[in-house]
Amino acid sequence: MKKTWNVAVVGATGAVGTQMIECLVERNFPVGKVKFLASSRSAGQVLEYDGKPVTVEELTHDSFDGIDIALFSAGGARSEEFCPSAVKAGAVCIDNSSAWRMNPDVPLVVPEVNPHAIAGYKKKGIIANPNCSTIQMVVALKPLHDFGTIKRIVVSTYQAVSGTGNKAIDELRVQTGELLNGRPPKVEIYPHRIAFNCLPQIDSFCDNGYTKEEMKMVNETRKIMEADIATTATCVRVPVFYGHSESVNIETEKKITVAKARELLEDAPGVELVDNPGNGEYPMAMDVAGEDLTLVGRIREDATIKNGLNLWVVADNLRKGAATNAVQIAELMIEDYLK
């Protein structure tokens, strides 16, 4: 087995790309050569990798010679265009965009949920990273599904602006300052003001009235969980910088008591149980920024149905919802598949 691996981070200057770089360092990924790739606008910038300067290069079809693993977070269009070139050059692509997620020949992987699916990477040389809101939900639901078989999910998400990228982070910061100083805010990134507001729209609307973000949760959950779970979602953008929160209601075939749910989640990989509401202890977005665990709390039975539970699920959308999940996949790749 190789001792080190050559890694390219595509979209290295973006919100997720910078987190991918941090995760590689923090988790001591055995990197030999590292390459940072981005658009021509960002080429020439100097970033750090483990304390050493690395110059960002322009992404081209010839960027992947000698690369073993390419971590992509540069948007769907670039992933569709450049992943095949990376694979042709001999790299395995782990893609954070939505470009490949529902392709039947591309595994959609959350390591705590369906690590076995990674084996399917050989068909295309690509592994897809799920949507950030889907990742944290299935991490929380997997142990409950294994015990009681989930039939139906009703989820409402409250998603941070960092899910849209650095420009959205800046817009929330600027709009907040403008409003606090009595000035009209500029609206550029979202269809309406995000500061001191909630937007019940993430991505564009489909013909069925749902947004693309909501349909991602529906379709990706079935693929990852490998079960035809009836899912309905409402996705809302909220004025929070980092951390997605979710209200999740599930109906199961076998009854799961609150005590049993807590027991299952307490030992679940990637989960931290924070569920003592009487003492004001429950998951909050401000607690997950920079963290990799999925926090679960507010567990209670749904009295309107026979076998129902409500949960509150929170995670850092840039970390577990994107960068950390991708690096975890890479760790499994070098451990079990790449030699």
Rank of each mutant, 00 (worst) to 15 (best):
W5G: 00
N6T: 06
V9N: 11
V10Q: 11
G17L: 03
L24H: 09
E26F: 00
V34M: 06
V34D: 00
V46D: 00
D50N: 14
S63I: 07
L71Q: 08
F72T: 10
F82S: 10
V87I: 00
G90V: 02
C93L: 09
D95F: 07
W100E: 03
R101L: 09
N103I: 12
P104F: 13
V106Y: 13
V106P: 12
V109M: 10
V110C: 09
A119M: 09
T134V: 15
M137C: 09
V138P: 08
A140G: 13
I150T: 01
S156A: 09
E171V: 07
G177L: 13
L179F: 03
N181T: 07
P184I: 06
I189S: 10
P200G: 03
F205Q: 11
N208M: 06
E213T: 15
E214D: 14
M215C: 11
M215I: 14
N219F: 15
A230C: 11
T232Q: 15
R237K: 15
P239M: 09
V240H: 03
I250E: 06
V258S: 01
L273A: 12
N279H: 07
G280Y: 08
Y282V: 03
M284D: 02
D287H: 12
L295D: 04
G297H: 10
G297R: 06
R298V: 01
I299L: 12
L311R: 04
V313S: 11
V314C: 04
A330H: 07
A330R: 06
E331Y: 03
I334F: 05
K339C: 10
